[in-house]
Amino acid sequence: MWNYTDKVKDYFFDPKNAGVIDNPDGVGEVGSISCGDALRLMIKVDPETMVITDAKFQTFGCGSAIASSSALTELVIGKTIDEAKKITNQDIADFLGGLPPEKMHCSVMGHEALLAAIANYTGEELAEDDHEEGALLCKCFGIDEGMVERAVRGNKLTSLEQLTAYTKAGGACKTCHEKLEEKLAEVNAEMVTEGMLTSAEAFTLGGAKPVAKAAPLIQISPLAAEAKKAQPVKPGMTNLQKIMIIQQAIEELRPHLQADGGDVELVDVDGDSVFVHLKGACSGCQMSSITLQGVQGALMEKLGRPVRVIPADARRLMDA
């Protein structure tokens, strides 16, 4: 069974704030019975101070869905509407001491319900949802079919190597390569039908293709678009502060890599994308994707929100 943290178990077996608020000031309902999880969040708001004075939930779902819902209520009670708007799904997962990668969508659902409840209270239009799209293909990096399809289409990707460079999917444990190749072939085949690719360029299963045949890359990376959509770092943190934190974190990591004969250098920061250059023993090392993962983990810890660490080489490809 899942490796749930003790906190997830506590919040599942003994959820706080389960139930209904009579005459709530805001209600957010997300999910569906066909998806296997659904959540109704109810909030009470003090109109003078705009503070959320009470929150309750009802959830249909698995252990982590119930725990995430309960965690969400604990996070929002006592916060103002403006403060609550800044809560991310990562905050919910962090509150629970982390969630298994397959279960991160539970925290996303909590976040969606919160936005819906706030919108319901303030009367604002709700922004488009970004619920997971399709099956989770790469568990290491949490990349789903929707993201793979966007990356492949947006950049005319025609090889697994490119796909990994653009999305990181398949960059760590590699067990998902077969599924990624199938998805890549499927999307490429659609692109051929639509005239976006020639059949010679398209990736096909079982047919090894010379690297030189790689399709021309267009300029805008899907990651840059993803990153732009994401809002600035921690509340109140300027871009400069963010870059300084990243620079400092990387300086702290360098001695560890240097001890193994490698090194890392910060090249650029663009939204939530951090471009680095791996040097010495790190560059070309079979384990470089693991190293990047480690750097990414350290940066996320310092910044308190998700970022993507991307090799600068991959960006050169994007800009080529």
Partner: peptide
């Protein structure tokens, strides 16, 4: 109107081992 993994977790706490066709126990989304 309830979900299988949640049932299994409670059953497990009562010392009862069963299984479920629920999406959430397998990690697939269906």
């Amino acid at each position: 109107y309830i979900e299988g993994e949640a049932i299994l977790l409670f059953l497990n706490r009562m010392g009862i081992a069963a299984s479920s066709g629920s999406a959430c126990t397998s990690g697939s989304l269906e």
